[in-house]
Design a binder for these strands. Structure first.
Length: 285
DNA sequence: CATGAGCGC
C-alpha cells in the first residue's frame, strides 16, 4: 500500500498540484521501463483515490483502483484547525493550501525533547563539559526570552528618589502578592512594620526550588541582567554546607527585583522550575 | 519541603 502512511498534508499537496508524489516517482522507477501508465492519486473531500497499474499473477496488466477514507491524525488536530484559518496580508486571495511561490514544503522535522530522566542520566555521567553546556543553553534561552525586560547595568542611571511606578500592578499578573509598602502610593511611613530606615530591604526576593548544585555565582549570573545586586544569600546547612535549595537576592532597586520575579519565576533551571517571590523581612526584625 | 546571621545598645 504505497504512501498510505505518508502525511496527509503531502498527499493533499500533491493532488492539488496535480503531480505524483515522491513515493510514486520511486515506484515508477522501480517498474523499470515497463510501459505502464503512471499511477496517480486524487483527493476529493476526505476520499483519496489511488489508481495503479501492475501485472497480476497471470502476467496480465491490470488497473488497480483503491479508495481510502482520509482521517486526520490525532496529533494533527491543531494543524487541521489551523488549515481552516483565513489567509491574510498579501496572501489573502490565494486558494487554500500552500502556494509554491511563497511556501517551501520542507521535509519532516524531528524534534527531540529531553525528559527529566535523560537529564538525570546526563548528570550521572558526571561530564562537566556536558553539564556546563546544558547550563549555558538554559541560561541563553532565558536571556533570549527576557533581555527585553531586563535592565542593562552598564547603562544604569543613578537611583532617583521619584515616585515609582508599580511594576507589579501593570505586569498582568493578577493575584500576585505585593507588600503594601510596594504598592502605588505606599510608603514605609504608617506601615505596621518597624521602620529600619532602609528601603533597600524591600528589594529582596526569595528564590526557591533551586537544585542543590546551584552556587552563589550561578545565582549572580542568573539575576544580574535585571540590575545591580546588593547581596546574595544562599541558604546552606551550617555544618555540611549543603544547599538548602533556597536563596535571597538583594537588589539595589525594587523595580529590578520586580522584573526578576516576573521573569525568572517559573523558569526552568537545572531540571527544576524556579519559584521567585518577594522575601518577607527576616525573622529577627 | 523551604523566609538567611551575627551583632550585643
Amino acid at each position: 500500500m504505497p504512501s498510505e502512511d505518508k502525511p496527509i498534508a503531502w498527499a493533499a499537496y500533491a493532488a492539488e498540484n496535480e503531480k505524483t508524489s515522491w513515493a510514486d516517482q520511486v515506484e515508477e522507477e522501480e517498474t523499470g521501463g515497463m510501459d505502464f501508465p503512471p499511477s496517480s492519486e486524487k483527493v476529493i473531500g476526505d476520499i483519496k483515490t489511488v489508481i495503479d497499474y501492475k501485472l497480476n499473477k497471470d502476467d496480465k496488466k491490470v488497473k488497480v483502483i483503491r479508495k481510502y477514507k482520509l482521517e486526520v491524525k490525532k496529533t494533527s488536530k491543531s494543524v487541521a484547525r489551523r488549515k481552516l484559518l483565513k489567509k491574510f496580508g498579501l496572501s489573502k486571495d490565494d486558494p487554500s493550501g500552500p502556494n509554491k511561490a511563497t511556501t517551501i514544503i520542507s521535509e519532516e522535522v524531528m524534534m527531540q525533547f529531553m525528559s527529566n530522566k535523560e537529564e538525570e542520566l546526563l548528570q550521572d555521567q558526571d561530564d562537566p563539559t556536558l553539564s556546563k553546556f546544558k547550563h549555558q543553553l538554559q541560561y541563553y534561552m532565558f536571556f533570549k526570552n527576557f533581555k527585553g525586560t531586563a535592565r542593562d547595568p552598564s547603562t544604569e542611571e543613578p537611583k532617583k528618589e521619584e515616585p515609582e511606578e508599580n511594576a507589579g500592578a501593570q505586569s498582568g499578573a493578577p493575584g500576585k502578592y505585593i507588600p503594601p509598602s510596594l504598592r502605588a502610593g505606599g510608603s514605609a511611613a504608617g506601615s505596621s512594620m518597624p521602620s529600619r530606615g532602609n528601603r533597600d530591604e524591600q528589594a529582596t526576593i526569595r528564590v526557591t526550588n533551586l537544585s542543590e548544585e546551584t552556587k552563589e555565582p550561578d545565582l549572580q549570573e542568573l539575576f544580574k541582567p535585571f540590575g545591580p545586586i546588593q547581596r546574595i544569600y544562599l541558604a546552606k546547612d551550617k555544618h555540611t554546607q549543603q544547599s538548602k535549595g533556597f536563596a535571597f537576592i538583594n537588589f539595589h532597586n525594587r523595580e529590578d527585583a520586580a522584573k526578576a520575579i516576573k521573569s525568572v519565576c517559573g523558569f526552568g533551571y537545572d531540571h527544576l522550575i524556579l519559584n521567585v517571590e518577594w522575601a518577607k523581612p527576616s525573622t529577627t526584625n
